[in-house]
């Protein structure tokens, strides 16, 4: 090997490392992508919020594109995304279903009564079992599920307007075609 080139090896390695570190600055180490994206959504049946006589069955959703939003009354970030969900509901673009995660009906209902209800139906997941099947690790999380029941997208953390416009709306347009 050329003698002078050999002494450049450390420098080259260093600059490769810098490249990765720079990229790393713009990645979020706390965001764990879900292995469930591209796979069939786990089916579940759960009592409906404030109306335990009714049961929500995710299998009934086949044939339509729907949004599953996992939220809870005790979750601060959920309040943050609440107005975005309300706007979505108003636009009528998509049916949003809620999954009330590890919560009591009473407290959840109180939040909805105060701030409005963007959901078509809300299933309850009192012991967090459904959450585990969906790989939920921090509420709020939102899943887009297509007509065949496959999860197409997962949003970890609150849906911001930016996420709504850049990711969710284009994806819905494509799926609803």
């Amino acid at each position: 090997m050329n003698r002078t080139l050999k002494f450049l090896i450390p420098l080259v390695l260093f600059f490769i490392a810098v490249g990765f570190l720079f990229k790393g600055l713009y990645l979020d180490p706390h965001e764990v992508p879900s292995p469930l994206v591209g796979k069939p959504a786990p089916t579940f049946q759960a009592p409906v919020l404030s109306d335990a006589s009714k049961t929500f069955n995710s299998a009934d959703m086949k044939g339509q594109v729907w949004l599953l939003n996992v939220w809870a009354s005790w979750c601060g970030a959920c309040r943050e995304e609440h107005p975005v969900l309300m706007a979505m509901a108003k636009s009528g673009q998509i049916a949003t279903y809620g999954l009330d995660y590890k919560d009591t009906d009473q407290e959840a209902q109180a939040v909805l009564d105060a701030n409005g209800n963007p959901y078509k139906t809300i299933a309850t997941d009192v012991n967090g079992k459904i959450g585990i099947d969906y790989g939920v690790y921090g509420v709020p999380e939102t899943y887009i599920i297509d007509k065949t029941g496959v999860i197409r997208y997962k949003q970890i953390g609150p849906i911001t307007e930016e996420v709504l416009i850049n990711k969710i709306v284009p994806m819905l347009k494509e799926l609803q075609r």
Binding site: V32, S34, P35, L36
Partner: peptide, 8 residues
Amino acid sequence: LVARYGDF
């Protein structure tokens, strides 16, 4: 667990 949360 891996099926739900990935290799992470």
